[in-house]
Write a protein that binds this DNA or RNA. Sequence first.
DNA 1: AGCACGCCGACT
DNA 2: GTCGGCGTGCTC
Length: 845
Amino acid sequence: MIAKVIVDVPSRATDRPFDYTIPAGLIGWVEIGSRVGVPFGGRVLQGFVIGLADYADVDVSKLKPIAELLDHVPPLSPDLVELAQWISEKYFCALTTALQVMIPAALKGKADSVVTISEEEQDYSWLHAGEGDAPWLAFIRASGGPVRMAALQERFPDDAAAIKQAIKLGILTEQVSIKDRLSVRKVLTVYPPDNEALAQEALANYSARAAKQQEVLRYMLENREPITMSALVETLSTTSGTIRAVADKGLITLREVETQRDPYAGRNFKRTEPLPLTEGQQAVYEEIAEALDAEASRVFLLHGVTGSGKTEVYLQTIERCLQYERQAIVLVPEIALTPQMVERFKGRFGDSVAVLHSRLSNGERYDEWRKIREGRAQVAVGARSAVFAPFQRVGLIIIDEEHESSYKQEESPKYHARDVAVRRARQHGAAVVLGSATPSLESFAAASRILSAASAFSVSDDSAKSSGGAALLPMPHRVGNRPMPKVHLIDMRDELKAGNRSMFSRQLHEALLDRLEKGEQSVLLLNRRGYSTFVMCRSCGYTAQCPHCDISLTFHQKSRVMRCHYCGHAEQAPEKCPTCESEHIRFFGTGTQRVEEELAKLFPGIRVIRMDVDTTTEKGSHEKWLTMFGERKADVLLGTQMVAKGLDFPYVTLVGVIAADTSLHLPDFRAAEKTFQLLTQVAGRAGRHELLGEVIVQTYNPEHYAIVSAQHHDYAAFVQEELKHRRFMSYPPFCRLIVVTLSDEQLTLLITAGDKLASTLRQLAYESGVKGWIDSDGSRFIDILGPVASPIPRMKDRYRFQCMIKYRGNVGAIDLLKQAISMISGPQGQPPVQISVDVDPQVIL
DNA sequence: AGCACGCCGACT
DNA sequence: GTCGGCGTGCTC
């Protein structure tokens, strides 16, 4: 039996299966999806088995056996291995990279080796200048067994060469194995007496001086249940020493017991029952239920206005799904994965919910993952990567706020969770529900059949035969028919004309004052996308730039340090301008900070919670602020994007947007869409309950369609206008994009390679039979733009150029690109410069 | 990615 | 004469 193994080296040259024999002892254990340690080029690496075969593809004499099997149960299943293969092809990454994102970081094994002395009685004094054994050799001898290589290196850092030599000469034998980074958590547990008669007797005869010990013993005899040491200490208000003393007498037993970490341990989630559905919810529910009943892999776009009760629909469709003994995955944008959100799922489904988010420790995430794989959880709620939750039979995948760009991973593999979800659902015959108040144009186009199916959904690229597309399920009304909040646009140019130079318009000022008097709460959004805190000289215009990347340094108030977001370079902020020596160097602090100061000035005694990167980096701080706000310990919640998502506070009756336009004019074709989405989302935070809500939007572009449509809660109007622009400019959803970034330290090399890639690609496209490569009817075309300097032209001392490929229809763009790259690469496939590919990019800044 | 093999400069 | 620079090639 031969195992096809993908080794954990993410490079083009090794991105293919290598064959290994399976040692007799492991036959039957090694499966597709197994994680193994294999000898590879003189060392032992972690690898994944992606196939089993009777015969090897290479000469049998070259084969080596698998060195070890790393898990009893394979961490991946065949369907996930297949999904990884799809990801590596579609998103242009090494297969091992795709496999790695599917397992928790705790299982990313690293080689760990031990050495032993091969022949004990030899005289090795010749190894070093002195008498007898070298100190490191003596150390190994003294230990009497295998010594960890890492320990040896740490203790004898100067003898690395000698130790290596000894291994080579066969004096030392090295044994390598893969060690996981995971630690199983153990808890010291107290067990009741085995011998009750003896214990009863001891209890009666306990020395009067050991009352506490007696109490411990009595407790254990009465309760007869194992209890953790810490809990026992707490209940009897004693010390572990006392308990140990009882154990030393042999009356009770102490044992280390493996436990699961539960990040939500000790939290009681109030059980909730399904709510009666409104007519609109019911109709949507039935559509989805029908697909669940039929085990049909269908995609639904649930377009529900803010406050229309999407979550309740999710909960009830999940319940339906669970009835078929199939599992459900719920994806939520990281930032919306708040305790409020988790509570709703835990409240309905209790312990069968596993929660996966980035704030968990490696160990916690591993335990939640195991809970899923071992069938103890039926529902997984999590961010992007939860789409890989290792369920056996997925019946339903829900993607909440499907338009969020955080579903696209920006590092390799640069996958989009929405597209992966659709693909995974197809494997399992599962339904996909994409929910949003402001669907992405791509999803909306797919659902409303504006375009031919083949160009609509990313997934339909590889199967023109599948109908692609999605079914549109609208929920246009709020629960209880609550009105949408009234949105006022304030033209800030008029404010300036009227002599108001403050960042608050007179209307917003008044409204804030009003809420303060009534004791109601307000949310203030500072739309700060694309604007960071930087250092600038007011006299000469100098701005502090990173010496390695062409980008402004970000100023951190606390430490007065300027830092580069891309490479981490940091330096002290200067006292005076380094070019003109002027003292007028200004630090433009975070926008939110300035707003906070202004608020304090205008409204003395106002209680403000500020949420931005500075105040929410600490673990749990995000929750802390929101809880405080929920308890009405503040009048105003001020923040960036993060205050716009999924929050639901009954006393919020005013939402103010300080500058709606900041994201409108970014050089990104999605700028208008992002602005519309943000305004709509944040407006939805107001008046969700009994109290009516009001929204005040300050802008310099009160006639822009993105802002006007948001004012009228008119998604359809926005889409109609935006689609016109997209069609005219040939952007998604009217075509698909691939951005290829080339980077190198040498500019000349880079330019040559860039030109070569683009011309090769154009030639290939021309030859590929897309006649004239721009098809006149527009149903199929491919267009190659560039190379041009990237928006960040230099990063980490490397220059960057990019090409953009626009295409539509089944033109095999990814294959053409693959071909072109291999044509400009060397014989081993080594590219002349570093090439990184982003398929369906979300941010084109 | 690492590591070995291999062909040209400054040293005991 | 050798030690060692890192270019090229390979890892089942």
